[in-house]
Nucleic acid binder design. Structure first.
Lengths: 212, 212, 212, 212
DNA sequence: AATGAATGAGGCTTCATTCAT
DNA sequence: GATGAATGAAGCCTCATTCAT
């Protein structure tokens, strides 16, 4: 009845490759569903993705999804929170609260670009579902916390004279949007995700917000 | 199936009063449908908008929509192309091909912000449906043409030394994304759409792409 | 666009025979649905009756039901109220409020037995759905009003000395139950619905409640 | 598949404590299932009760039910027959075949009211599932045997002059229905189950069938 | 051209039943 | 015997589309 250690090992391997078939292990099934949902919601949008299609891509039966998630909405929200918390965690872990604004910016830039490179679909998902009407209050709270943290960092950079004056939300909207635009063009194949391009983009984005 | 020039002319009048007119005039009916569709696709998304609902908001019968558009997809695509061409036209009309990069930038900035202020829903629609899976090749071509023009302008700015070096698509992605991010935050009520904020944003965006 | 009079005539004939096919007339469609639902809910119960089955018996497509009723629950409730109001109206129209208790009893008996003979399925439906959990407050209110009227009549009969002492609800429960039991046995083919049997039953029921 | 006598004996003990015991004893498991099913079928109806829910209330796993019952239908039928036989047995045990009709009536009345008081849910179950479409022929046969015995007793009462003339099924339908109506009103909270009310009801029911 | 009732495929979800452990 | 995750048929309902008027 308990083969957790074995199956966990097996799952983590499977997860790193592709969606996969029915292992009979609840955790693996759950992961397969989350992976399939992530992909499909990115490819076709929430309403454009039929639940049975998610099941098919996950290699399970349609009904099985409802043993793991209460509803399609609960599923998107879980995907959303899982990845939003993950990216936030990865970027903010070891965030240099005492460093200069430029160093903080660099740290965040590296963290986010790394995440995008490793989990491009997850980043696309988060961006596409930003403020989607089917996100529940808890998901919005996660969103909001990230936003508030960023606004505070910006405000402190302004206080220190390193970041240009102006309402932090304006700068944040521009900065976040610029990065999203870059990623989007990369996904569309219009730009490459090379160190050179990224260095250029980083400098440009810093110039976007830095004080003159 | 399209009679853009005629209907567009009349449209601007209809739009300024009310949509959902049903005078028995085919062009007016068509416009009412396009207006209703624009509103609803923004409010509820493509999949969330039922065709009979569009008809109701347009003040006509459900079946009538199919006398003007082949399908729901044809309808979104027409809305998309209509507005994409319109914003492109408005921004590029009188575009100062001979002016300095900074002046060109300013002209474009004024044009786009004006469009956003006057047609916020249309801009939201275009942004929300960017690369949607139900957009057809022709709609994508319209997108592509805009993109190519912008890339050329950037490249010329680089050649003249006014715009920072780097692949034009990177700069374009950042710039376009920054603007979209600003508008999005404005729509979400996080920033105001005042001259001050816009001036700040314009300068920041110029710094994003200008040469050092 | 208005063929109301013609179609109404056609419908009332059809209604008297059997459920029927799609006439294209909304009222007739609605009636066909109500008739089919009445039959099936009696034969198989509410939860045992699939909506598409109702549609099939009504000779229409499944989706059509939802143009006439918001939900399956709304459908049962409409069937319930329609017939409950009808039987109440038929029995209470010309109810002799000033007559003796025995005459009142006889009047009600005749009215109800007539209704049962004419609309046996409707009576079965009402009895089977008495207090069903999916009946909405309005349906329950209809139920309640009938009950209260009967209780008052009983109480007045007791006041006049014609009806045996005791809590009116007890007598009402017994009396109503006895009649329902009689109808049930008739439906099951155990007793005949002949004047002789009915006269016997009427006398027995009167003896059930009359004063010694 | 049935081991009625063994399990029934043990059952009365289990029922008096709590259902949902799961001692690893097959008979106890079976009893727990039957108890849980009885409760739930009364509370939520046959179609409204999910098999896994029965399992949960019985304190066992869903699959286990199918080691004891072939199907959900087999389960209801077993519940039905178990209790139908039990009430019949309790009422007819020591039935005074030689006594007067009035005494026989009284004996039956006491037996049934006692059963209702002790097993209200079981009585509700039997009444609610009378002639349900998912009862199988054997269940109907059990019903039929009870009915036939009662008809014979009535006929003998008529032969002795104590019971009014008329087709026994008519009297039986009325009598049984009256009692059911009483119980139903009691369950709905409209009448109390007190000695006074019961005495009144007994006399009324006797007057329903007794000769003038 | 317009209407709007009707259609029926397809979407989300439930649940009776199976089966590997 | 028991488990409980998985199954997939079937249920309720929506909605893009058609067609008789």
């Amino acid at each position: 009845m308990d083969r957790r250690s074995t199956t966990m090992a097996r799952r983590s391997v499977a997860a790193r490759t592709r969606p996969r078939a029915k292992p009979g292990d609840p955790d693996a099934t759950r992961e397969a569903i989350l992976d399939a949902a992530l992909e499909l919601f990115v490819e076709r949008g929430f309403h454009g993705t039929a639940v049975p299609l998610v099941a098919e891509r996950a290699g399970i039966a349609a009904g099985t999804i409802y043993r793991h998630f209460e509803s399609k909405e609960a599923l998107v929200n879980t995907v959303y929170r899982t990845w939003k918390e993950r990216i936030t965690g990865e970027v903010l872990r070891d965030f240099p609260l005492q460093a200069s604004a430029r160093d903080q910016f660099h740290t965040a830039w590296i963290g986010i670009t790394k995440f995008v490179a490793e989990h491009p679909r997850a980043y696309a998902f988060l961006e596409l579902h930003h403020h989607a009407p089917y996100l529940d209050p808890e998901s919005r709270a996660v969103e909001q916390r990230t936003y508030e943290f960023a606004a505070v960092v910006i405000a402190r950079g302004q206080a220190g004279g390193a970041i240009r004056r102006g309402a932090p939300p304006v700068l944040l909207g521009l900065l976040h949007g610029a990065f999203v635009g870059l990623v989007r063009f990369w996904r569309e194949g219009r730009v490459a995700w090379t160190p050179d391009e990224l260095a250029l983009a980083e400098q440009a984005c810093w110039d976007l917000i830095r004080a003159a």
